[in-house]
Design a protein around this nucleic acid. Structure first.
Lengths: 248, 248
DNA sequence: AAGTATTTTTAGACATGACTAACAAATCGG
DNA sequence: CCGATTTGTTAGTCATGTCTAAAAATACTT
């Protein structure tokens, strides 16, 4: 059987990373050497060689032992594709969600390999839409300005705005989880907690839009048993009080 | 040497997937068996057994040969954490970017393992913010309504809105890439192309906010050589015409 | 209770992607 | 031009995560 050329459609994310690294090296320094690739990817040179062989077998790079590495047309196309995804994601995290650049990059790197075409398209549309429309621009400004205090531990304008909001809302239909009657359900609007308490609650699955049902409140008011997505959980009183929801 | 308990901090995303699967199975069917896990994850049962052994060594599940599998407290905590991330991402893709549910899930599955705490926090804040604020709600409505036509191939209200926008803008400072003077730079505002042409351009790295410099236009007007992030590219005339940018 | 079917585990194989250590080739400095 | 340094490759090891095939344990049926 002829050793078939491996289809580059089956490329692994590790190989995509190598490809992207080569792309960046060629752009910045004209040539890509094994050493530089190893350095950039933080692996040993001896790990690079076999990766280059695989990329070469896939027809994505031009690779001869001990020579400079170049992208083929096909390889450059794929590298650009990955790089584009990286760019849009990094910008989304940085410009829209307000992450600092290193954290934006960290998240982007992890996602760039798996973003579907349609998701990519939607991200681009989101940029076009929010950038183009004055209302969008302003809203984004507000969000970023309010969230600009790094970390969720300190009170910032955003928190204050949310509190305002919730005060306004409470007069309508928003109540805290603690005030929900047993057997009733509500949809989470916001979590008025900070720091590790907030994170713990998010990790438990208490997220905006989640439907929560009160199961039972202990006579003393603590703990509070709730049902959430088919599971039971118990919360401290002050945790329950911090969750604002609309009844459904 | 004592066989040290493996630190669950070093868990792989594959093992996180197993954990999440067990979490969902226990929730939906009370018990998790090897068979069901294999079925849910679309792997053979013989791949599950060693994974269970590893999870057990990490103290994340209770696993005795040939018995039902349960999460430990630690395991459930981690499973919930992954599951929360999955939820927020899936909702983001579905409710904010407007992807259909299977595509939303596909993207969420790939990202859930790597989302940093801070990124998670920002996603939650985005939900809280846009859900809470009437202006945000409305803007999101507009975006989704405009984008609701699946795929980027057909003209929809969104495209029309963008065209309107660009017409308005053109009177100010927005011009097409083709009309940019050689040597001048511009920042991409939108890409007025559809279907495969649009995708190709996105894959090339022509994205909103990208800085592009015109290098040279062939006498006939086609092709157009541009510089983008330290790289040269050549575009067809109609491709260049479809890119709208502000001069910088 | 015995035989059959299902479920789970084991054994053995393989690709990926990393590592260390040792070796080979290329480059640089005097 | 020759030795030292840098760079790249090979060989051998290892963990992960999948597979197939076969064996073992459990459950079901008559």
């Amino acid at each position: 059987m002829v050793k078939a050329q491996i289809d580059h459609k089956d490329i692994t994310s590790s190989l995509e990373d190598y490809l992207e690294t080569i792309f960046e090296l060629v752009r910045d320094r004209k040539v890509a050497r094994v050493r530089d690739i190893a350095e950039a990817r933080q692996v040993k040179a001896s790990s690079v060689t076999p990766a280059m062989r695989r990329l070469s077998r896939m027809g994505l790079i031009k690779y001869e032992r001990r020579e400079f590495i170049e992208l083929t047309a096909e390889g450059e196309k794929l590298a650009r594709r990955v790089y584009s995804r990286h760019q849009i994601l990094e910008r989304f995290f940085q410009n829209f969600l307000g992450l600092n650049s290193s954290e934006a990059r960290e998240n982007a790197c992890a996602m760039e390999h798996s973003l579907t075409n349609e998701a990519m398209e939607r991200f681009v549309r989101l940029f076009e839409f929010l950038r183009g429309c004055p209302a969008g621009k302003e809203l984004l400004q507000t969000f970023l300005h309010c969230s600009e205090v790094q970390g969720a531990t300190r009170e910032c304008a955003f928190d204050r705005a949310l509190k305002q909001q919730s005060k306004r809302k409470r007069e309508h239909s928003t109540i805290s989880l603690f005030d929900l009657k047993p057997g009733k359900k509500g949809r989470v609007i916001q979590i008025n907690a900070k720091g590790s308490m907030r994170r713990r609650m998010l990790d438990l699955g208490i997220l905006p839009d989640t439907i929560i049902e009160i199961e039972r409140i202990a006579p003393s008011g603590d703990p509070v048993w709730i049902k959430l997505g088919g599971f039971q959980l118990s919360l401290r009183k002050r945790e329950a009080e911090s969750v604002l929801l609309t009844t459904v």
